[in-house]
C-alpha cells in the first residue's frame, strides 16, 4: 500500500466512523443516566431528513446541523415523556421510536429523493488540499465535533459534579432521589442530549457521506451505535476506539474488494461478521479480567418509581 492509498483509506474510515461515534456518544450518556433508548436509528433518520431539507432550502450546512439536533431532541422527547413521565417500558418504547422515526422521515422526505445538495466542506480548506496533511486537517467540522465530544463527555462524566450526579442517577436512582436530586429531571436532560447527538449523527449522512436523501439511508448504523456502547463498556475513549474499529472493518472490506488484490479473496460474509466477532472477543477479554464487571449502569432500563 502506498502512502497515498493509506491516507485515502484513513479518510474514508474516519467518514464512515463519525456518524456511529456521534450517535453512540449520545446513547452512552443516556445509558449512564440509567435509560435505555433503542430509538437511536429512528432519531438519526429524523435528523438526516431535517438536515437534508434545511440544506436544500437554505444552503447553510451549520444551520442544518443545528436543526437536525433540534429535531433529534424533539423526537427524543416523545420517548422521554412515555418512559420517564409515564414509566412506559423503555425497550418497547425505544423500538417504537425507531419505527416511528423511519416512517416520519420517509413521509417528510417525499419528493426530496431526486434532489442533490452539497457536502459540508472541510474546516481548513488550505490544509485539506495538501496531499499529506489532509489526513489530519482535511475533514469537515462534524469529524472534529465527534472527537471533541469524546473528550468533553469523558471530562463531564469523570471530573464534573454534574457528571457525578448523572452517574448517581444511573447507578442508584433511589439514593439520588433521597438526597434531593431530580432523577426524572436528570434523565430528561440525558435523553434530550442523546436525541441531539442522534440528530447530528443523522445529519452526517447527507452532509458528510452522500449528499442526497434516501429513505432508511442510515441503514442500521443506529443499531451499531447502540451495540458499541456495550462494546465500549460505557466508556468514551473505548467508544472512540470501537467506532473507528467498526469503521475500519466496514471500509477495509470495500477497499480489499475494489483493489482486486489478495485481500479480495476473503468472502464478503467473513467481512460482514468481523465487527461482531470483534465484539465477542472484546466482551470475553473484559469479563476475564480480575475486576470483572461489565460496568453497566445498575439502573439501566429500569423505570424510576419512587414509593413517595
Amino acid at each position: 500500500m502506498s502512502t497515498d492509498l493509506i491516507i485515502a483509506v484513513i479518510i474514508t474510515v474516519v467518514g464512515a466512523s463519525t456518524p456511529i461515534l456521534i450517535a453512540a456518544l449520545g446513547e452512552l450518556v443516556v445509558e449512564r443516566a440509567g435509560v435505555l433508548n433503542l430509538g437511536v436509528e429512528g432519531m438519526m433518520l429524523v435528523g438526516a431528513i431535517t438536515a437534508f431539507v434545511i440544506v436544500f432550502v437554505t444552503g447553510n450546512h451549520y444551520l442544518a446541523i443545528l436543526m437536525a439536533a433540534a429535531a433529534g431532541v424533539a423526537t427524543s422527547l416523545i420517548f422521554g415523556f412515555l418512559t420517564l413521565s409515564l414509566s412506559a417500558n423503555q425497550t418497547a418504547t425505544g423500538l417504537a421510536l425507531t419505527i416511528f422515526g423511519t416512517g416520519l422521515s420517509a413521509l417528510a422526505g417525499q419528493g426530496y429523493s431526486a434532489k442533490p445538495v452539497t457536502l459540508l466542506g472541510p474546516l481548513f480548506p488550505g490544509l485539506a488540499a495538501d496531499p499529506f496533511w489532509r489526513v489530519l486537517f482535511g475533514y469537515s467540522a462534524l469529524v472534529y465535533f465527534a472527537l471533541f465530544m469524546v473528550v468533553a463527555i469523558w471530562y463531564f462524566l469523570k471530573r464534573t459534579r454534574a457528571g457525578l450526579i448523572l452517574r448517581a442517577v444511573g447507578e442508584n436512582d433511589l439514593s439520588a432521589h433521597s438526597i434531593g436530586y431530580s432523577v426524572i429531571g436528570v434523565r430528561y436532560m440525558a435523553v434530550m442530549f442523546g436525541g441531539a447527538m442522534a440528530g447530528i449523527a443523522g445529519a452526517c449522512f447527507p452532509l458528510l457521506l452522500t449528499p442526497q436523501w434516501a429513505e432508511r439511508m442510515t441503514a442500521g448504523r443506529g443499531w451499531i451505535a447502540v451495540a458499541l456502547v456495550v462494546f465500549a463498556s460505557w466508556r468514551p475513549f473505548r467508544l472512540l476506539a470501537g467506532a473507528y474499529l467498526f469503521g475500519l472493518v466496514m471500509t477495509m472490506e470495500l477497499y480489499a474488494k475494489a483493489g482486486g488484490g489478495p485481500l479480495s479473496a476473503i468472502p464478503s460474509e467473513l467481512w460482514a461478521a468481523l465487527p461482531y466477532l470483534a465484539t465477542v472477543v472484546v466482551l470475553v477479554l473484559i469479563s476475564i479480567r480480575r475486576d470483572a464487571s461489565t460496568n453497566a449502569p445498575a439502573c439501566l432500563g429500569k423505570p424510576f418509581l419512587p414509593s413517595n
Binding site: A8, V9, T12, G15, A214, R216, M250, S268
Partner: peptide, 21 residues
C-alpha cells in the same frame, strides 16, 4: 458486491475505495 440494494453511504464508500485504487 455490497449485499444490499439500498445503503447510499456504503455505495459512496465503495466508489471512494474504487477511485482511490
Amino acid at each position: 458486491y455490497i449485499s444490499t440494494w439500498n445503503d447510499p453511504a456504503k455505495e459512496a464508500d465503495t466508489a471512494r475505495a474504487m477511485i482511490d485504487q
